[in-house]
């Protein structure tokens, strides 16, 4: 394992049993042989449509979804863990070091607890502080970093707007001083005007606290502005992965290209240029053979229908999983 990576996965798969106990028993592979490395201090984005397995991938890295096969390693320089085999004290310690920020700030905060109690709860549950004064001090410190007023701490969540609630939920995730934070659609439920504010806050906290983010989102323009490396997922597999700039300047996979062109342009005269993807993402219980994307790909050939392509790295950090990307590149 290279020393600069916080997380490294090798053929990581997560499956869930579906169907009856005896008859029709099968496994739904939500994440299918994903190999990725997340460098320390990076803002790593995962994009994909609903049903692409991006959330399950994030949960597997937090040890919140069972790893079926393959491996995932965590190494922050102080400790290193094999995430598939965590137990006991190591698991407890990993829970402190890896945290999650949820999507919906309206559902993620208990309406019966004050903001102070919400933020303090992880400290108390994990027994990180010895006295109430110490807890209060940590809460005040993190609240300040997340731009919450001290008077806010006495109130209940219902008194806050969406943006403020998301700041509370970020404060709660960061109070245990984690190293790795999974932000699952953390701005999807917010208005555009607030969204920018939360993204800027996540960025500044990253610098101040030395965090590594896994930023899961379906919104490509948000990912383009915040992440430094992006992986595109489809049906549980990585289709393309590259540094943000490179990916947005020269996407190689037909799926990535189609995703980009589907973003509505702000220019009213630029209508109807989108390269349309027909149909919808297939059900993971009934996977297509060969390349997972061939059912919707306008360039699919017999080879695509038969053989599964492998993720191929062709220049620094840029990998693509497509049989025909070189040919298509020439044709462009």
């Amino acid at each position: 394992m290279s020393n600069d990576n916080l997380i490294e996965t090798q053929d990581l798969s997560v499956g869930f049993p579906v169907g009856g106990k005896i008859f029709n028993k099968s496994t739904l592979m939500a994440v299918n042989e994903v190999s990725l490395s997340i460098p320390r201090g990076s803002f790593f984005g995962v994009v994909g449509e609903s049903g692409s397995g991006k959330t399950t991938f994030g949960r597997a890295l937090l040890n919140a979804a069972p790893i079926t096969s393959g491996s995932a390693h965590y190494d922050d320089g102080e400790v290193n863990y094999n995430l598939g085999k965590l137990a006991g004290a190591d698991l407890k310690e990993y829970r402190r070091r890896a945290q999650l920020i949820f999507q919906d700030p309206y559902a993620a905060l208990s309406p019966r607890m004050t903001v102070r109690d919400i933020i303090a709860e992880p400290l108390e549950v994990m027994g990180l502080c010895n006295s109430r004064d110490e807890v209060d001090e940590r809460v005040r410190e993190i609240a300040g970093l997340c731009r919450l007023n001290l008077e806010h701490l006495r109130r209940f969540p219902h008194a806050f707007s969406g943006g403020q609630r998301q700041r509370i939920s970020i404060a709660r995730a960061l109070v245990s001083k984690p190293r790795f934070v999974v932000a699952d659609e953390s701005v999807a439920a917010l208005d555009v005007s607030i969204q920018a504010d939360i993204l800027n806050l996540l960025k500044s906290l990253q610098d101040e606290m030395g965090l590594t983010y896994l930023f899961i989102s379906h919104d490509l323009s948000v990912v383009a502005h915040t992440c430094d490396h992006v992986a595109v997922m489809y049906l549980g597999q990585i289709m393309e992965s590259a540094p943000t700039r490179q990916l947005f300047q020269s996407p190689r996979h037909p799926y990535t290209k189609a995703l980009f062109s589907a973003i509505p342009s702000l220019d009213p005269d630029d209508r109807g240029k989108a390269q349309k993807l027909e149909g919808e993402i297939p059900s993971p219980t009934n996977r297509p053979s060969g390349c997972q994307f061939h059912t919707r790909c306008p360039f699919a050939t017999d080879q695509c229908r038969r053989e599964e392509p492998h993720l191929e790295t062709f220049e620094a950090g840029h990998a693509v999983s497509c049989h025909r990307w070189r040919e298509l590149e020439m044709a462009d």
Binding site: S193, I194, F248
Partner: peptide, 24 residues
């Protein structure tokens, strides 16, 4: 103007995101 500035745009990735300050 604030709503338009707050929108992340793909043609200029270096442009900082400008939130509309405060809450509704």
């Amino acid at each position: 103007q604030g709503l338009i500035d707050a929108l992340p745009q793909l043609d200029d990735l270096d442009k900082p995101l400008m939130p509309v300050p405060g809450d509704i």
